[in-house]
């Protein structure tokens, strides 16, 4: 069996004069989860649509397991599952019909398909299998579609904001499932939720204006973009006296509110320790925490640099 792979080679996509993707290239092999990050209109969904042959590239090539998706979509689809935007199976189908439709097209054994449907019904807390799709909430429908993507046990999964529109309970179910699945699948997942990407992904790609700005593994990104602010909470309200004392120690207060202040620093562990040492001399510190995540810092910094 070939190793699972997702590859884009110099892919560009134009809609009239608008260039949605500009010479995008990347390649991932094996297993794991790749986060695809960027603001609205950056080119994330366009990339995923090209990888599912819903759009065709103006130039370049997109492959799944080495198969050109736009030339031989059926063969590529046999190896992948996808959830692009918010798909909706036919409203008059039941949940079971919708899943069996996929199972039959994927040549799954009927008994095996039923077993797997039952498994995902529990794992993804699917609604009653006899319920009609048209009667489901958005979150329930999304979980059915995710189940349909996972049902044939594909080697590659493409997920476009898979937890969009879900409640926190549903989000957790999906995230846990992705963490489980990435052990033996290659997952490319776009998301707006940086905490979600930080939690489930091993690699990240940053895209904006149709161009790849940066890509690396999450550990490297975390090292490079440490949080550069701490929030300090004191037992007593922060007054002018305390602010003056903090400023006199050469610390940079970004803002203060009630019992807490946010202090900016260079992001190094040494300075972080030094700040804490100084603060406990001027007040009763009851909380000392980073503000924002490394990924958030990276996202803002890379996008800012990319647009300059």
């Amino acid at each position: 069996m070939n190793m699972a792979s997702i590859e884009l080679i110099n892919v560009s996509k134009e809609f009239g004069k608008f260039r949605a993707l500009d010479n995008v290239s990347f390649k991932y092999e094996g297993n794991g989860a790749i986060g695809y990050l960027g603001p609205n209109g950056a080119g994330k969904t366009t990339t995923l649509k090209i990888l599912t042959n819903l759009l065709r590239p103006t130039s370049g090539k997109a492959t799944i397991n080495g198969i050109n998706v736009n030339r031989n979509p059926v063969e590529a689809f046999k190896r992948m599952g996808s959830v692009i935007e918010s798909p909706s199976p036919f409203p008059y189908f039941t949940v079971e019909d919708s899943l069996m439709f996929v199972a039959e097209l994927r040549r799954m054994d009927r008994e095996d398909a039923r077993d797997r449907i039952e498994y995902y019904a529990k794992a993804l807390a699917l609604p009653d299998l006899n319920k009609r799709i048209g009667d489901l909430s958005k979150g329930q429908r999304q979980r059915v579609v995710i189940a349909s993507a996972l049902l044939p046990d594909p080697e590659v999964l493409l997920l476009d904001e898979p937890t969009s529109g879900l409640d926190p309970f549903e989000m957790k179910i999906i995230r846990d499932m992705i963490i489980k699945m990435k052990k033996d699948k290659l997952i490319l997942m776009s998301s707006h939720l940086l905490s979600e990407v930080a939690e489930v992904c091993d690699e990240v790609i940053f895209i904006n204006h149709g161009k790849i700005l940066a890509r690396d593994n999450v550990a490297n990104i975390s090292r490079e973009f440490r949080a550069k602010a701490v929030i300090v909470e004191f037992l007593d309200p922060v007054d002018e006296k305390l602010i003056s004392a903090i400023k006199s120690m050469g610390l940079d207060i970004e803002k203060n509110n009630g019992n807490s202040v946010i202090i900016r620093y260079d992001g190094s562990n040494d300075q972080r320790a030094e700040i804490l040492k100084k603060l406990i001399n001027v007040g009763n510190v009851i909380r000392y925490d980073s503000v924002g995540s490394e990924l958030e810092e990276a996202y803002i910094s890379i996008l800012k640099n990319g647009s300059q």
Partner: peptide
């Protein structure tokens, strides 16, 4: 949005 369900099947 049915296309995102049906047209990505083999």
């Amino acid at each position: 949005s049915t296309a995102f369900y049906t047209l990505v099947q083999p």
